[in-house]
Design a protein around this nucleic acid. Sequence first.
DNA 1: ACCGTTTGTCCGAAATATCGGACGTCGGTC
DNA 2: GACCGACGTCCGATATTTCGGACAAACGGT
Lengths: 265, 265
Amino acid sequence: MMGDGVAEKQAEKQSAEKPTGRARGIDRVIALMEHLHDRRAPTRIADIARDTGTPRSTMYELVNTLVEARWLELRDGDGTVYFGPAMHYYGSDYLDSVDLIRKARVEVAHIAETVGETAQFCTLDGDKYLVVLNEPGRRMFRISSEIGIKVPIPWTASGRLLVDHLDAEEIRRFIPSEDFTLPDGRRIAEDEFLEDMRRARTQGYVRTTALVDRFTTCLAAPVRDPSGRCIATICFVVPADTTEEAQQMMIDTLKASAERLSPGR
Amino acid sequence: MMGDGVAEKQAEKQSAEKPTGRARGIDRVIALMEHLHDRRAPTRIADIARDTGTPRSTMYELVNTLVEARWLELRDGDGTVYFGPAMHYYGSDYLDSVDLIRKARVEVAHIAETVGETAQFCTLDGDKYLVVLNEPGRRMFRISSEIGIKVPIPWTASGRLLVDHLDAEEIRRFIPSEDFTLPDGRRIAEDEFLEDMRRARTQGYVRTTALVDRFTTCLAAPVRDPSGRCIATICFVVPADTTEEAQQMMIDTLKASAERLSPGR
DNA sequence: ACCGTTTGTCCGAAATATCGGACGTCGGTC
DNA sequence: GACCGACGTCCGATATTTCGGACAAACGGT
């Protein structure tokens, strides 16, 4: 998964950037930030330079500029850098500027707090599933903040709702075939997936268990636009051994929240 | 220090950048993002160009690049741009990477939810006060998400805690004199401010009423490092007519949260 | 329908930011 | 103590990005 990300990146370097060894500072910076986001950890400048194909001297120059602007921060005292506070400010401005997300924050925070389990708000980004908001809940372990990380649609409960409006043929065209293979190598049959979707549409929620992870159950409910199309989902991530009774309660909670978030009502 | 930062920046504009009309793309991008953050609203490209002193053609070029990278988003269909989802991802990575902030998120979310009032987590940035986290609470009005906006220290309750470790003379040197003037023109006497600080230290919290805004009360408690220095505050923003009883309860809540956040205890 | 303003694109020229490589330092290893 | 690799800085040359201005299209008020 991570390996693919890196390989991809280097492939990019070799196709889109090969023509010239020279690139604009801004393009270098974009590559730098994407690299940090993929790695999700403070990283040494020389490593970033190597992995993004940027000359070392250029990277030092850019990092200095960005640190000054608070886009990046030097960490630990060893020579690693990571995102700085400016990113948080700009990110907050973004969240506040998108109506649905602003409302979703309230809902996600509320249900995570009252139920005590990790709650998320998710959408599609291209043909991938994406966690937009994540509120950890009360359990200490598993702080799976995957914000901004893309995941194949079939790997998720929410994914079964988000492609709700497509028929079998459209699904086949839309979701890359390899995305039906789970991280452990198992493959999800397409009819199984379609059947999940059908059931989801009638029931108004989805439950998946042990999909990407053997011990986790996901519960998701659809946020729909006035035309009925699923534009986002709100969901819980809970241990698989959660009682049926508790899960039913969470499903009701999710449905209520999702309903409140659905625009034009 | 940060005030200098701002002054410095503008001095730069007039000294370091004037000589030549030409600037690096990355510097123009930094100016662009700062401008959007200051305006806090989708803005037309031509306006950004004018207000940041960037040539129009350059700004169009850069905006296109940034939109492609999802750093910016075209809004509404009119030609305005604002921050895009990438900023949210990077900002989330930053929040997750800073231990104290990660813990503070949990506390702020929890107390905002249980008490139902707006809760915030604040620090100093140079010689200014800064809201790092803001959780709106249950009231509908006043969604004062001032994340990333700097405010004079004397205008805030938290400010009285954050300069806790300075003596009268140091305070005078540290806080710009003009920062003692409130937005409505009233001036805070320095001894009054010092007296507030003294009381705050003995009581373990601060309360201010009608400081920047006639109808608002702020309650704040200090997060201290092992040496006892106040490194951040956690606070409530409530209507001034909140009952004394309710306020006492909130103060206890704040003190408990602040205690949990204080490192090495 | 007219005209002034704003928007977005395109182009050539030249000022300069990027790049490669050299250099001094620092730490660890044999 | 000599060697090796990594780190961070500096410098000159040139490939390139920025910039100004021109242009067409869209807009909006009269």
